[in-house]
């Protein structure tokens, strides 16, 4: 892969130079830490989370296929080697949790993992079984974050998860949506429920969350996970037909995936983005977006306008 290496010091200085407002004064924004990728604090605890995580939708649902599991183990190895943290999955994703668990075991449970999964059932009792199954499949006694998937039976599940959090059986709770669905109801939950995380679709082409949800997350101190950063791949497929704009160099981007990820994680309210991939080279490209310069508000506006014009 043709990519320039960026030292932590250079990354930090570049970030300050390119995006002084984002990094110095706006709450919720991140900073390079000791050579590791850019990280942002989870508002409810201050714990730092690398801004580029990993999703598992489709890419890790490979069943018992030993060849595919080998390949996914290589992807996870590259993820952790680049300082990755959050892996997000769900019982809805077929065998993805089992595959992640298998890969983690083969990598001897690397340090730095922030495990995030979901509860996805309309039954409260089944939700408890799902939580136990997720812990078993991941091979972990305690996962970091449980989220209510797509707002399904959210009142009951949030009650369960809150009780588990109080008992120390998990660390964070949250709620998810995607594809821009049910934002009004999500906003209501964010306003009234004591959640640590919200997960929603946000990327350079899907920016509805900027109007209400992202400001609300910042106001309420809720961490934001941005899913579908590449619109399931279609956005990046479309953009790859065009050369990178000149401003991409200003923020140390060498491909479109980094441009798209930097746009997302440079929003002050966004904590991390979770691109999914089944390829090591794509993982390395994605993780490189957590280093180097970050766009400031003016450049973000220009990026959005330029991409919309393509």
């Amino acid at each position: 892969m043709n990519r320039s290496c960026v030292s932590s010091r250079r990354a930090f200085l570049a970030a300050l130079a390119v995006a002084p407002l984002s990094f110095v004064t706006l709450p919720g924004n991140g900073r390079a830490v000791d050579g590791r990728p850019l990280a942002k604090p989870i508002p409810s605890t201050g714990e730092l989370l690398p801004v580029v995580g990993m999703g598992t939708w489709i890419t890790f649902n490979v069943g018992d296929d030993p060849t595919a599991r080998d390949a996914r183990t290589d992807v996870l190895r590259a993820f952790f080697a680049a300082g990755g943290g959050m892996i997000d999955s769900s019982p809805m994703y077929g065998t993805a949790e089992a595959v992640v668990g298998s890969c983690l075991a083969r990598l001897d449970h690397p340090k730095g993992l922030f495990s995030a999964t979901k509860v996805w059932t309309s039954s409260t009792a089944e939700g408890l079984e799902q939580i136990a199954a997720s812990e078993r499949l991941w091979g972990l006694q305690r996962l970091d974050l449980f989220q209510v998937h797509n707002l399904l039976n959210w009142r009951s599940h949030l009650e369960t998860l809150s009780a588990m959090k109080a008992d120390g059986k998990l660390r964070y709770i949250g709620i998810t949506t995607s594809h821009g669905r049910r934002h009004a109801e999500l906003a209501q939950i964010m306003e009234t429920q004591p959640i640590d995380f919200v997960q929603l679709t946000y990327n350079i082409a899907d920016r509805e969350a900027e109007a209400r949800l992202l400001p609300l997350a910042a106001e309420r101190g809720i961490a934001v996970i941005a899913n579908r950063p590449f619109q399931g791949g279609s956005l990046i497929d479309r953009l790859q037909r065009y050369p990178l704009p000149g401003w991409a160099r200003e923020i140390d981007c060498t491909d479109w995936s980094q441009v798209l990820l930097k746009f997302i994680v440079s929003h002050p309210a966004v904590t991390c983005a979770i691109p999914a991939t089944s390829r090591v080279d794509h993982m390395e490209e994605n993780m490189a977006a957590a280093r180097g310069g970050v766009p400031d508000a003016a450049l973000r506006r220009r990026m959005a306008a330029d991409v919309a014009a393509l």
């Binding site: 489709i58 890419t59 490979v62 296929d65 595919a68 809805m92 077929g94 089944s278």
Partner: peptide
């Protein structure tokens, strides 16, 4: 459809 084309084809192989 939470799987890729590659995984679907591999399903039939396996």
């Amino acid at each position: 459809i939470p799987f890729s084309r590659e995984t679907y084809f591999r399903l039939f192989e396996r």
